[in-house]
Write a protein that binds this DNA or RNA. Structure first.
Lengths: 156, 156
DNA sequence: GGCAGATACTTGCCGCGTCAAGGAATTGCT
DNA sequence: AGCAATTCCTTGACGCGGCAAGTATCTGCC
C-alpha cells in the first residue's frame, strides 16, 4: 500500500470505462426495477430474495444466508422479509438447530408470484443489459467482475 | 415487442454475468464511498457533482445539467447542492439568460476539498475496480456499457 | 398584449438500506 | 456448572434518492 500522495491517474480508456460503469450502476437497477414493478407489481428488492429462496433446498434459507446472497445487510433483510411476510409470500420459522436463528421459507403464493414476475424480469434484463453484449466473450468479463470490490483476504 | 409469455432463458454464461454484475452494482459504490469517506470525509454523492463542476467552463453548471451528468433526478440534485452550499463548496446564482434556472458554481474551498479527496478516490477505484481488468481490452466493454439501460430512442 | 402550455427548480412524502444498540441463544473457558 | 464472549436477529434513528405536486418563469399562438 503506497503512500497516497499522487497516485497514477487513469488513462483515457480506463476513465471512460469507469464513468460508463458508474452510470450503468445507477441506471440499470432503476430501469429493471421500473419494468418489473410496471409489469408484475414486484420491486427488484423483493424479487431478488424470492428468487434465491426458490433455488434453495426446501425453498428455505437462514436470514443471514439470504442477506449475503442478496448483498444487503442483515438488518436490511429483516425489513424486506417483514414486507414479504405481510404479503404472505414468505414465512418465518424458528431454526431448530440454533435457537437464535430464523428460517425464511417461500410459500406457494410466493412462488406463484415469483413465477408470474419472472418473464418480465428476463425480458428486462435481456433488453437493458444482455442484448448489448452479444458477440462478446462474457467469461473473462465475469471473472473480472468476480474480483471486483470483494473484501481483502476473502477466500472466495 | 413479443408477447412476454416464455422468453428465452439466460444461458449459464449470461446468468453468471448478470449475477456478478448485480453484486458489483451494489458492492462497488459502497466500497468506494466507504474509502473516500474514511480518507477524505467526502461521500461519493458529493464527490461526483464537485468533480463535474470542476470540469465545467467557469466551474459552473445549470442544476439540470449537473443532475444529468451525475445520473440522479433534479430533485435529488437540489438536495445535494443544498448540502454542498451549506459546506461552502458550491454557490447558487440565478441564471442570467433564464430566470427559472439556477447555476451551481464551485468555490475555491470546494475545489480544494475535491483535490484533497481526489487521490483517495483514484486509489479506491483502481484498487476495487480497474486493477482487476488489467490485460483486458476495455474499449468494446465500454462501448457495450454505453448502450446499457439508455432510454429507447435516445440519439447518441 | 395576454393567456395556455411547457420548462426549471423546489418541497413533501415515502421506500429502502445503513449503522449502532439491544435482546436472546449459543459456545468456550475454567 | 457458570460466566464471558460471540453470534443471530430485530429495532430505532437517519441519509439518500425517487415521484408527485407546487411555484415561478418563459415561449408560442391568437
Amino acid at each position: 500500500m503506497p503512500s497516497h500522495q499522487q497516485p497514477q491517474p487513469l488513462d483515457p480508456n480506463e476513465e471512460a470505462f469507469v464513468r460508463e460503469l458508474s452510470r450503468v450502476m445507477l441506471a440499470l437497477p432503476r430501469a429493471v426495477d421500473a419494468d418489473i414493478v410496471r409489469e408484475a407489481g414486484l420491486p427488484l428488492s423483493e424479487y431478488t430474495p424470492l428468487m434465491h429462496l426458490s433455488e434453495a433446498p426446501q425453498q428455505t434459507m437462514r436470514m443471514s444466508e439470504l442477506a449475503t446472497a442478496c448483498n444487503i445487510t442483515l438488518s436490511g433483510m429483516t425489513r424486506v422479509v417483514t414486507r414479504l411476510e405481510k404479503h404472505g409470500w414468505v414465512e418465518r420459522t424458528k431454526c431448530a438447530k440454533d435457537g437464535r436463528g430464523w428460517n425464511a421459507t417461500l410459500t406457494a403464493t410466493g412462488l406463484a408470484r415469483l413465477q408470474h414476475a419472472w418473464p418480465a424480469f428476463l425480458v428486462s434484463v435481456r433488453h437493458h443489459l444482455v442484448d448489448h453484449f452479444t458477440g462478446q466473450d462474457l467469461a473473462p468479463l465475469t471473472a473480472a467482475l468476480q474480483r471486483v470490490a470483494t473484501p481483502e483476504g476473502e477466500p472466495n
